[in-house]
Design a protein around this nucleic acid. Structure first.
Lengths: 137, 137
DNA sequence: TTCCATGCAAAGGGTTTGCACTCTC
DNA sequence: GAGAGTGCAAACCCTTTGCATGGAA
């Protein structure tokens, strides 16, 4: 990763009100270089490759922080583990329940019409749409 | 629960190809008396009240079996635990991420338009739509 | 110096597994 | 008697927590 990207990503963290540290920068870089779907464990491995002084706890702490600040979204597609999505634009997902493949659904292929009456005193946080498929036979 | 209900529920299990046992009957009764959203732990407590000789393992085994046979659906609304839905008709959910309240969205309030191109060699299993809300402030 | 971030290892909690026992056919 | 279903407790795995260390303001 080059200096320019570092600066952009650092700014993105600061803009979200997140103090920049070496580990957060490495985690953010892995997440934001391009839109990805990753588990915490995958991210830990990936980040450790460039910044070995990164612990599991820090990855979880940072992810939690990023989610709170709206930089990434949690996807609950698999009961075994949470997947983090670095694309925070509204979009739908296609998930293969056997292979674990997770991809985005092109916006023009599916849309949601209407919004349910929200319970009094609540506000909308997010709408998840997951199309689950499995290999045929 | 009365004899008639027992018979109906037993038939429902047999129709799904599930050999009937005392525990499965009690679990099925708790699930199918009316449409509900429950966790495995809640179900265990509930079933034990009527059939104390029921173990956690049996509840999990039975739920897994029921899911395979299409009698209940797994909902991944919360990373902490899986919620089982005894209403297998297609419908959407409204989930309060703070209180944990989980309700159905009336069909007339929201609908999904279009279906994405499925990856070659895969078949549609299920489409989950979860509207997440939180208490205001 | 004060506070926050981090590393490490242990704890936590939902779910699964191993194994012996029971029941059914 | 063979196979399936069950109970019990331990094992598992992802995630969180406690605590001491280190770094920044």
């Amino acid at each position: 990763m080059n200096v320019l990207e570092h600066a952009e990503i650092a700014d993105r963290l600061r803009a979200a009100g997140i103090p920049v540290t070496l580990q957060r920068l490495a985690i953010a870089h892995a997440l934001f270089e391009r839109p990805i779907h990753v588990t915490a464990e995958q991210l830990l491995r990936q980040v450790k490759a460039s910044v070995p002084e990164t612990s599991r706890a820090t990855v979880y702490n940072s992810l939690k922080l990023f989610v709170e600040k709206g930089l990434v979204k949690e996807l609950m597609v698999d009961p075994e583990r949470v997947v983090f999505d670095s694309n925070t634009e509204p979009h739908f997902h296609l998930y293969d329940i056997v292979t674990g493949d997770l991809t985005d659904v092109p916006a023009e292929q599916m849309s949601l019409v209407g919004l349910p009456a929200l319970p009094p005193g609540t506000k909308l946080e997010q709408i998840d749409v997951i199309v689950r498929v499995s290999p045929q036979r």
